[in-house]
Design a protein around this nucleic acid. Sequence first.
DNA 1: CGAGTAGTTGACATCTCTCAATGCCGGTGG
DNA 2: CCACCGGCATTGAGAGATGTCAACTACTCG
Lengths: 262, 262
Amino acid sequence: MPTAALRSTVNRIRITPVTQATESSPVAPIKTQCSSCHLRDLCLPCGMNGNDLDRLDSMMFARRKVKAGQTLYREGDRFQYIYAVRAGTLKSSLMLSDGREQVSGFHIAGELVGLDGVAQGHHASATMALEDTEICAIPYAHLSELAVGASGMQHVISRLMSREILREHSLMMLLGSMNAEERLAAFLLNLSQRYAARGYSEREFHLRMSRAEIGSYLGMKLETVSRTFSAFQNQRLLEVDKRHILITDLEGLKRRFEVRVH
Amino acid sequence: MPTAALRSTVNRIRITPVTQATESSPVAPIKTQCSSCHLRDLCLPCGMNGNDLDRLDSMMFARRKVKAGQTLYREGDRFQYIYAVRAGTLKSSLMLSDGREQVSGFHIAGELVGLDGVAQGHHASATMALEDTEICAIPYAHLSELAVGASGMQHVISRLMSREILREHSLMMLLGSMNAEERLAAFLLNLSQRYAARGYSEREFHLRMSRAEIGSYLGMKLETVSRTFSAFQNQRLLEVDKRHILITDLEGLKRRFEVRVH
DNA sequence: CGAGTAGTTGACATCTCTCAATGCCGGTGG
DNA sequence: CCACCGGCATTGAGAGATGTCAACTACTCG
C-alpha cells in the first residue's frame, strides 16, 4: 500500500553533522539501466523513443546512496552530474552572502536535480538529502555528447530544462503574489499531485521537511507555517500531526486555493 | 553618448489598446545575420565558434518591430520562436486564474525571451513591449534542427536555458527572503549592471516600466515601491525623478544591499 | 480646458515577524 | 529504567513592515 510505504520510513532526525557524500564509495557502485527502472515514465527517459532509450541504457548510470543530512553537491562545486532521484527526498537551497538560506525546491522520486549547473559549469545551489535517499548520477558531458545527432534525445533534455523554468515560474508567482494560506495550500496541493503521479495517496502523506524548510521555500517564517497548518485544521481542510498530513477536504482546498497559472 | 541615447527615447505612454503584433507584416521583413550584429557578444551567438556562427548566419532571422503596448506572444500561444531583443524593452508576465498578474522579467537589448515555451509547446507567459522595440524572431524548431550534430551550438542553447534558471533563482531569493529596500536595491543594481554591459551608464538610466510593474516584479505594491524610492533619495543613494534614475552613491547602494548568491 | 494616467504621500489596517513560553518526542547516559 | 537534553512544533502577545484607501500633484492627450 503506497501510503503505508510512505509512512513506514523512519522519520529520521538529521543528527549526522552535515557531510559531503563521498564521490567514489569504496564498493563499486551498482549500475542501472533506465529501461528497466520503474520510474522510467516520470524520469529522464520520459518521452524518448526506443532508439534514444537504447543510447541511454548504454550509459549505465551509477547509483548512489545519500544519507539523511548529507549533501549531494554544494554551491560552487564543479558541475559534472545531473541526478535522478530513485527514492527519498532532496532539498535544494541557495545562500545569500549574509547567511540567509532560501530553499529553492524539494525533489522526490523520478525528479531531476542539478540542471542549474549547466550555465556556469558549477552548481549555483546546494542539494541535501532530507531522508536516506538513492540517486542515479548522470554524467552531463557524456549525456550531451550522446545527444549530439540524436535530435529526440536533445529535445528531451531541452524540455527538461524548460520544465525547470516553469517550475520556478510558479514558485515566483507564489512568492510574489500570494498570502500565507495560499502559499501553504499551493505547496500541499503540489505535493499531493506529485505523490499521486507516483501511485501514492494524494490525501495522506508524510512531510520530509521541517516547518523551517517549508517556510524558507514559501517565503515565510516557521511560526507562520505552523499557524497556517493550525488554521487549515480549524477550517476542516486538513488533519495535521507534526509531519503527517491528511487532507480531509481536497476539493475544498483546491476550490479555495488552487490558483492555476492562466 | 549612451546615457543620452537612453534618455532621448520618448517616454511613451501606452495608450494603444493592447494588440497582438501581426505575425506576418505586410512588407517583407528585414533579415539579419548575427555575425554583423553589434549585440553578437551578448546575445545568442555569444560563445559560438566560427563554424557555428556560420550556421546561425544561414538562418537569416527576421526582424520585427513591436510597438509599445503590443504583445509579442500571450500565454497559451503556440511556441514557435524565441526572440532576441535588438532594441527596446519587454516585460514578461504570468497570470493567475483570478486575474492577479506577476511580472516575471524585464528584457533589454541582447537578451532572449520565450524559452519557457520549450517544455510544453506553448508559451506559459505573455510578453509585451514597454516601449517601441525591435526583435529578431528565431524559429526554435529550425534552430534546434541546425544544432543537431553541432555540439557547440547545442551547448550554447543549453547554457542559455540554464542561465534562465539562474535568473529565476535570484528572483526567488529576492522574493523569498528580502525586504522592500533590499528588493528595490537589488533590482536597480541588476539593471545598472545590465546597462553597463551594453555600454550605457551604470549610474543614470531611464526606467521603462511603471511603479506597478516594478512592484509586481518585486512582490510589493506600487505605493511601497514609491516610498522606497523616496527613502533611498533621503538616504542620498539616488536621485529620482519619476522614471529617471541617478545613482549618486553606487558603492553605498552595493555595500548595503548587494546580496550575492554565495 | 477637462479627463485620464502615473506618481507621491499620509493615515490607518492587516498581516507576518519576533520573542518567549510550553509541550512533545526520541535518544543518551547515569 | 528513568531522567535529562536537544530538536521540532505549537501558541500567545506585541512589534514592525507592508498593504489599503484616499487625497493631491504633475503631465499628456484629445
